[in-house]
């Protein structure tokens, strides 16, 4: 029985890590490939999560919909809507230099999040959207959990394959050149605005998918679920720890950082009650410590960027 519990825990842990890997890969396309300092992940996460939730959940008086549509429709729509929201934002903000882009994206993400929190018809306000269907949930346990994990692993696998291909192609090369020196890329005939916008939209679509998968997994999305600490900060740390510019690093970072995050929860559960309130801060402290250690010992992350032309030795 103990073993079975451990197994279920491992399945749940990996599922969350893989969902986070989607977000981390999205950040990688923005920051790792193109140098876009997008710290508005939570905004695109929210758009994806609420879109898929409202489209697939059963009808409710709390919010528009739900339309009870099939889950794949919801997930696709989440990506498309996140991309559609990213398009005008990108058109306006991508001319800003990196630190100003960071400020703009934080602000926009908060606007999106607070809209969902305060405008009830959009996403149920403080109540959120409940009863979001999870694929395979009708299967007997533990197969429902295992099947969902396999689905998420397959999604991450397909994304990793495609993103890696784009990275190694001339498309990815132009993005890296823009990241390194925008003026030189422009002087070399590249339409910098167009490429930056493509990378921004593609990364945002993955952040929307990240939100949709999370909504279907936990079956509820509420304003607390879109906290920037959880869905902006963590994917960023995962990418930096794993290795910015390295897609496999993004996935590895997701597993490691989610592991640390989960472990601190287990550890802090054993602390005396008077410490319980401080647990949240302790977790952030530990993540910060990990970030420091990794950046000191591995400045490029655990799996540093590796230019595709250089032969492996």
């Amino acid at each position: 029985m103990e073993l079975y519990g451990l197994f279920l825990f491992a399945v749940g842990f990996l599922t969350m890590a893989m969902i986070y890997a989607v977000g981390s890969l999205g950040v990688n396309i923005n920051w790792g490939f193109t140098g876009l300092f997008n710290v508005g992940v939570a905004g695109f996460f929210a758009v994806g999560a609420y879109s898929s939730a409202v489209l697939t959940a059963p009808e409710s008086v709390n919010h528009i919909g739900g339309f009870g549509l099939p889950v794949p429709v919801g997930i696709l729509a989440a990506m498309v809507l996140a991309a559609l929201v990213a398009w005008p934002i990108g058109r306006i903000c991508l001319r800003l230099r990196s630190d100003y882009l960071a400020i703009a994206t934080i602000g926009i993400a908060e606007i999106l999040r607070l809209s969902f929190r305060n405008y009830q018809p959009l996403g149920g306000g403080p109540f959120g959207v409940n009863n979001i269907p999870r694929p395979f949930e009708s299967l007997p346990g533990p197969w429902d959990q295992i099947a969902f994990l396999l689905l998420v692993v397959a999604i991450v696998g397909v994304i990793l394959f495609l993103v890696q291909r784009a990275w190694a192609a001339p498309w990815g090369r132009v993005l890296r050149a823009i990241r390194e020196n925008e003026d030189a890329a422009e002087a070399a005939g590249k339409n910098v605005e167009k490429f930056r916008l493509q990378a921004f939209i593609l990364g945002s679509a993955l952040m929307g998918l990240f939100g949709a998968l999370m909504a279907h997994y936990v079956k509820i999305i509420s304003p607390e679920g879109t906290e920037p600490l959880l869905v902006t900060f963590l994917p960023w740390v995962m990418l930096i720890v794993g290795g910015a510019g390295n897609n496999k690093g993004a996935v590895l970072g997701a597993i490691l950082v989610w592991g640390l995050w989960t472990m601190t929860e287990l550890l802090t559960g054993r602390l005396p009650d008077e410490w319980a309130l401080r647990v949240g801060y302790l977790r952030i402290f530990l993540i910060g410590l990990l970030l420091q250690v990794v950046l000191q010992k591995f400045p490029g992350g655990l799996l540093p960027e590796r230019p595709p032309t250089v032969p492996r030795d």
Partner: peptide, 10 residues
């Protein structure tokens, strides 16, 4: 104006 973190050939 080199692309610092790209290899020379790229």
């Amino acid at each position: 104006h080199e692309y610092a973190r790209l290899p020379v050939i790229e």
